[in-house]
Design a binder for these strands. Structure first.
Length: 198
DNA sequence: CCATTAATTTCAT
DNA sequence: ATGAAATTAATGG
């Protein structure tokens, strides 16, 4: 979701600065704000029973996060933390609801966003259910590319570290490296420096 | 430069 | 085939 900054401000949205690696909300918290990134990157994650991290998603400029929880009476099922110094607009839940009531078109836009997210999450889930690391990586790449507008082959560059990719797919970093190498040989992906082009 | 962090390789299982 | 540990490369001050 990407809502006009001026509109957010006019309903009481405030700019908040987060330092690198700062917690924005954590699992179990009750949703109180709508969050939209102006600058920086945010990850949504969980830690499994033996402390390994699983990343649900990494969001950037003009993307919102956690908004589904504003419509539910549930605690957050995951954490949100900044990956780098970030600027985020924060709008209190009640004001957010007010804003939507006064701007019905937003409601429609949100439906479109949620639908899109559910759709791609479903595709992701199918890929992640596979034991085959190539399919998991391919699933992630397709998912990431869906956020990206352009549609040329091997020109979408993945700006994540190998470790982050591992945490997004539930694979080990070595497996990611080995599998990516294989995919490159098979022509599925290309490399520019060490970044993936898909 | 040195320190930190990421990528890759090695090695044991 | 997989992951922990060691090594090498890059990034940032």
């Amino acid at each position: 979701m990407n809502i006009d900054q001026h509109l957010l401000h006019s309903f009481g949205g405030e700019d908040k600065i987060y330092k690198k690696m700062e917690m924005i909300f954590k699992e179990g918290d009750h949703a109180q704000y709508y969050f939209q990134i102006v600058k920086g990157k945010v990850k949504l994650n969980n830690y499994n029973e033996d402390g390994k991290e699983f990343i649900h998603n990494i969001l950037g400029k003009n993307q919102s996060f956690g908004d589904p929880l504003l419509f539910l009476d549930h605690a957050y099922p995951m954490n949100a933390a900044s990956l780098e110094a970030s600027e985020i607009i924060r709008l209190p839940k009640d004001s957010f609801i007010e804003m939507i009531k006064k701007n019905p078109d937003l409601s429609l836009q949100m439906n479109a966003c949620f639908s899109q997210q559910v759709y791609y999450k479903l595709l992701m889930m199918q890929s992640m259910a596979s034991q085959n690391p190539t399919l998991r990586l391919k699933g992630l790449l397709d998912y990431l590319k869906s956020y990206h507008d352009g549609d040329c082959t091997h020109c979408f560059s993945v700006e994540f570290t190998r470790q982050q990719i591992a945490n997004l797919t539930g694979l080990r970093v070595e497996t990611v490296i080995r599998t990516l190498k294989k995919m490159e040989q098979e022509g599925n992906i290309a490399f520019k420096d060490r970044k993936i082009l898909y």
